[in-house]
């Protein structure tokens, strides 16, 4: 009986957590479309998420493109199918690796920072202070982060796509002796708009999820430094899991026949 009670209690706790997150998401979204809007905060978050994430996303993309080209070559050479390497690389990067890896890197960098900043504001009563100064924390803190996440991630992923394909091009032309023109032509000829669009849609969803998890865990953190630490960990872990699971769902929606 104790074991069944434990399962029941865990399931109810899970439902309660999902309910709290759903309410938080609904309230946050409603504040994204209702004035007043805090343009300066939105700009600051866009610089933080977009501009300062460029180096880490760019490095991830270039090395991923290079490794992908090498690995594809070692596999495809067994079937004398080296000529399709540019196509495989460009589709893999635009559809999957660009958005997922950029999403995971930004989740580590930005999701953690958001949870830590908002969590610290919570435990030091700065969020209560905002409220007493007649400023809604959802409008001032959370809405700008969500909007910035949705705007910046697709831009970052577009840049990551270009850098990733360039990484593949470098290895393809300088190491694997592809002709530069043929590599680019093959890559471009096989690429369809939907490959890029699906990646950008994924990026926008991932951007929203990263900001949502950072804000949600930060906003609900309790108990001082330990609570902020736990919120940071939870934000990164939950954003990463959601990115991977939503990646499957969006892929299914776009490409499943």
């Amino acid at each position: 009986m104790g074991f069944i009670q434990l399962i029941g209690r865990t399931f109810l706790a899970f439902l309660a957590a999902v309910g709290r997150l759903a309410i938080f998401t609904g309230v946050a979204l409603s504040h994204c479309v209702r004035p007043p809007f805090y343009g300066r905060n939105l700009l600051r978050q866009m610089v933080e998420i977009g501009y300062y994430s460029l180096p880490v996303v760019g490095l991830t993309a270039i090395f991923t493109g290079m490794v992908l080209t090498l690995q594809t070559h070692t596999g495809f050479a067994r079937f004398q199918a080296e000529s399709v390497i540019p196509q495989v690389v460009v589709v893999s990067i635009t559809r999957e690796l660009g958005p997922v890896l950029a999403g995971l890197m930004v989740a580590g960098r930005i999701g953690a920072a958001m949870a830590a900043e908002i969590g610290t504001m919570r435990v030091t009563e700065q969020i209560d202070a905002l409220t007493t100064l007649a400023t809604n924390p959802f409008k001032y803190l959370i809405a700008p982060r969500l909007v910035a996440g949705v705007i910046c991630l697709p831009i970052l992923v577009l840049i990551a796509d270009i850098i990733g394909v360039f990484g593949g091009y470098l290895i393809g032309t300088y190491k694997l002796d592809f002709s530069a023109g043929a590599y680019l032509q093959n890559a471009r000829a096989f690429l369809e708009p939907m490959d890029v669009i699906s990646g950008l849609v994924k990026a926008a969803v991932f951007g929203f999820l990263i900001a949502l998890m950072g804000c949600y865990h930060g906003y609900n953190s309790q108990g001082g430094a330990q609570g902020v630490g736990a919120a940071t960990t939870n934000a990164v872990v939950s954003a990463s899991i959601l990115i991977l699971s939503f990646n499957y769902v969006i892929t299914e929606l776009f490409f499943a026949r």
Binding site: T120, E125, D128, A129, T132
Partner: peptide, 13 residues
């Protein structure tokens, strides 16, 4: 209508 001084001031960092 309110102003509040918090225990640890709660200034925005």
């Amino acid at each position: 209508k309110f102003g509040m001084l918090f225990q640890n001031a709660a200034l925005f960092d």
